[in-house]
Simulated assay, not measured.
Amino acid sequence: MAEAARWYVVHTYSGYENKVATDIEKAVENRKLHDLIPEVMVPTEMVKEVKDNKTREVERKLFPGYVLVKMIMTDDSWYVVRNIRGVTGFVGPGSKPVPLTEEEVNALGVDRKEIEVNYGVGDSVRIIDGYLDGFIGVVDEIDTDRGTLKVTVSMFGRETPVELELGQVAALD
């Protein structure tokens, strides 16, 4: 039975995150370990920075000193990642790497799950997650690129528009 790849956090020297990520990818390519280490990423965000009265967008690392690696933990995969120049170890107690939990992966937004949209504009949907859990609303707009939709919900006798993520609603049967 093949186990599923899980996300692990690798600690690196500060400033070496991108180098470590590319070195891991090269090692995976050279040793043909794509089935054990399918993905490596350095989480970043775009931030507006004002310098000398000029605003520009720059990419900033979310977790300096860390690289996320999606892998099946075996002796081979552990050895490859652990022996990359710039890697100081895995995050976890002692020498035992601990994978991220499903909640942590969702909070980081690293694994984007494809959500099937089986409703359209004008359809009634039930909100299944969040502070409006259990409410029924009518879909006003769907933005699949951003993964959001706008729903009008009747609360306290008023029509209230709310923006939700696609995974927070389900079509009414």
Rank of each mutant, 00 (worst) to 15 (best):
H11L: 12
E102W: 00
K26N: 04
Q168M: 05
L149T: 04
R60G: 03
V110A: 09
V81R: 00
V69W: 02
V169F: 01
D76A: 12
D76F: 15
A5D: 07
H11F: 12
K51P: 07
I115E: 06
I24E: 01
T88Y: 12
E163H: 14
T22G: 05
M1R: 10
R82V: 09
V105T: 01
S14E: 14
L172F: 00
N30W: 08
K61F: 10
M46S: 11
L108Y: 06
Y13V: 10
M46Y: 08
R146E: 12
N83W: 07
R82E: 05
M41A: 11
A171Q: 03
D140Q: 15
G134N: 00
H11M: 13
E104N: 03
P38W: 00
T74K: 12
R112S: 10
S95Q: 12
R112C: 09
R126K: 10
E29T: 12
S124D: 13
K51S: 08
G109R: 09
H11D: 10
L62K: 12
T144R: 11
E17D: 10
G167F: 01
A27M: 01
A107G: 12
I37E: 00
P97L: 04
E104C: 05
N118M: 05
L132I: 14
D123E: 07
T101A: 03
A21V: 04
T144Y: 06
D123Y: 02
A170H: 02
Q168T: 01
